[in-house]
């Protein structure tokens, strides 16, 4: 009897974001640059040798920056230079601007505040009930698993008023995975155009943000940014279900501690609001 089987293990669902979930700290976030003077010791040659995805750059001023949008989470830099690089813990680090994924931040508080308020104005009507549509634009298949996981009883996004819909005409948020395969550019545009306004686009995963390791191939466009206007950038290879959840909540301005997290995660001083 399936009905009884459903009761066997009690409630399995996380209470995040209402209360903390230990697993969010157990999963790896993207790589970040640790504060300290050691970061200055890395030059351009070492930076490119450290990262097979080309996500580490040594700036002119001797400052090392990690583009989390290009980070494939292989961890080589953390192993080689634990004094400079570390894993950021927590449920991932979605950002409302592409530049916001570059740490430590070079962006000014004003521009992020501007992006935030624009998105907030646009998504005001969506906050309570949101319908999602997913399109694969050349993923490796793992991102789909992590999005699917949101429907399992552990994450159960229905409790947050979020539902997947079959038709783009009913969708508010478009989750796009994959490196922007050229064959998918047109179907992706058509799906986007079929969605009613207001609509939000989330680039799910490093591949969708920059193309990841598939960047530079004749068959991909290095992320989906060149195909659609992206509102939320979510790195990860693949991003964990909690990370996808946090990107969804960020998109509709329901991520608790959003302002604080944005400030801490991107080194932006003060309240961007």
């Amino acid at each position: 009897m399936w009905a009884l089987r459903g009761l066997r293990n009690g409630v399995l669902t996380t209470r995040w974001p209402a209360s903390p979930d230990a697993y969010t700290a157990a999963t790896r976030g993207a790589v970040t640059v640790l504060p300290g003077p050691a970061a200055d010791t890395i030059d351009g040659t070492e930076a490119s040798a450290l990262c097979p995805a080309g996500a580490i750059r040594a700036g002119l001023a001797g400052t090392v920056r990690v583009d989390q949008g290009g980070c494939i989470m292989c961890g080589r830099c953390v192993t080689a230079r634990p004094d400079v690089f570390g894993w950021s813990a927590g449920p991932g680090s979605p950002s409302l601007s592409r530049q916001g994924l570059v740490v430590p931040a070079a962006e000014t508080a004003e521009s992020l505040a501007e992006v935030t308020s624009r998105l907030r104005a646009r998504t005001r009507a969506l906050r309570r009930s949101v319908h999602l549509r997913h399109v694969d634009a050349g993923s490796d298949g793992s991102e789909e698993w992590e999005i699917m996981a949101l429907l399992n009883p552990v994450y159960d996004i229905h409790r947050l008023g979020m539902f997947f819909t079959a038709s783009p005409r009913h969708a508010d948020i478009l989750l796009v995975t994959g490196a922007g395969a050229r064959g998918m550019a047109e179907p992706l545009r058509e799906t986007y155009q079929a969605m009613p306004d207001p609509k939000v686009v989330i680039a799910v995963g490093t591949d969708a943000v920059t193309g990841g390791l598939a960047r530079g191939s004749y068959a991909t466009s290095g992320g989906i940014g060149g195909i659609l206007p992206v509102d939320v950038w979510l790195p990860g290879s693949p991003p964990s279900p909690f990370a996808i959840l946090s990107a969804l909540l960020l998109a509709v301005d329901r991520l608790p501690g959003q302002r604080a997290a944005t400030a801490a995660g991107h080194g932006v001083a003060g309240d961007p609001r």
Binding site: S139, A181, G216
Partner: peptide, 15 residues
Amino acid sequence: FYKHRGIEKRFEGMH
């Protein structure tokens, strides 16, 4: 072909 990524070609030249 929709999600052809040219992966085999992408391997070439890699360490």
